[in-house]
Design a protein around this nucleic acid. Sequence first.
DNA 1: ACAAAACAAGTTGTCGACAATATAGCAAGT
DNA 2: ACTTGCTATATTGTCGACAACTTGTTTTGT
Lengths: 214, 214
Amino acid sequence: MIQPVTSADKTFVALRDDIVEGRIQAGSKLSETELSTKYAVSRAVIREAINRLESCHIVERKANVGARVVALSPQGLIELYQVRESLEGMAARLAAKNMTDDEIADLSSLLQSHFDEVKGGESYYQEAGDVDFHYRIILGSKNKHLISMLFDGIYHLVRMYRVQLGMAGPRVTTAYDEHKHIVQAILNRDAELAEMLMRRHILYSKNSIEHKLS
Amino acid sequence: MIQPVTSADKTFVALRDDIVEGRIQAGSKLSETELSTKYAVSRAVIREAINRLESCHIVERKANVGARVVALSPQGLIELYQVRESLEGMAARLAAKNMTDDEIADLSSLLQSHFDEVKGGESYYQEAGDVDFHYRIILGSKNKHLISMLFDGIYHLVRMYRVQLGMAGPRVTTAYDEHKHIVQAILNRDAELAEMLMRRHILYSKNSIEHKLS
DNA sequence: ACAAAACAAGTTGTCGACAATATAGCAAGT
DNA sequence: ACTTGCTATATTGTCGACAACTTGTTTTGT
């Protein structure tokens, strides 16, 4: 979605952010009437927003009962990362095939600017930088389904876990090198290697997080 | 969805099937008022049904303009199979880890019954059999996201392509052997191999279809 | 005292009407 | 003749009210 235009769009974004950022508690019930007063819109647009949240797997609905925000669990996070590993691995593979030389050059310079930040003392893997990197590779796959599944679906959930389980900026040091190697593989148009490196990168991420949770 | 209960559920399923089976043409516009008379429900439930179809990637919406059934294209089919390869590969990997011995036994006997049908002259890879096989492995992954993405999302689109481009029952002969090898890998709890074999299986499928389209 | 049926309160599902927006056709001016 | 702006029409977006359902409570019968 380039920009929210309709009232339902805006409400969807607002509601989603409130959930992801934890202002609406995970696992809590979403009352349509309550939300409609809170966001000052009719129940119809609340319903549409909730429907969209459901297709993002951010809320769960039961007919004639209502919607609840999903509950966060270590198991859920692991499952999420398994899907990420699979999809982003494929994205890296396709990116190595489908990105233009210009796009790859941009990616390289992005990484370089990240390197400068690290050098300057700002810790790498602050969310923005990491997200930007993955973002470009996913787009570089040029695969509509892949892009929409990751951005509209997985992405916000990952962020929800990060925010609410308080794991901003993990693995500062090694992640940068991993990113560099992935770019190198894409530069060499080595799809096989790019996929493997991306999968490992995400796997390490998962292991690091699992370790922190235990 | 175990069973459609609400009116919007039923309309969603009916509309989806009408699109997948080609009774509503690919690429055509979906008028809310028109559909509401056709299915004898209010526009609100039509809107909800269309919203759900959008999250399945079966229709595309533009704000204040309306919804269109997606257009089928060779490129789209290829992208779909890339996602399938990625997700079902991971599903096979996880199934090798997570399926119970009983579930694996069931899978084996299912394959055996398919073998008997082939022997009996009925051609294998009739959709039902193939679908059933993949279905069980996906469920065997025990990964909620994977399951819902494939069943609610990808699956109906694949079927839509199969029906409308008239490619029922491709690759009758070799598919069975591939299935057998996958089950063997799962039986051996060899996750790595199971994933690789499943990816190859789907890749072959894609190549076969690409060949038919050209 | 307990179980089952009836009731009550509140929530979700559905509807028809109204408002806002896009599209096509016409009109007018250059 | 072509462009530009307006108008008419049709479609989508939003709303408030009503219907259907779920759930917890009370009542009733044994």
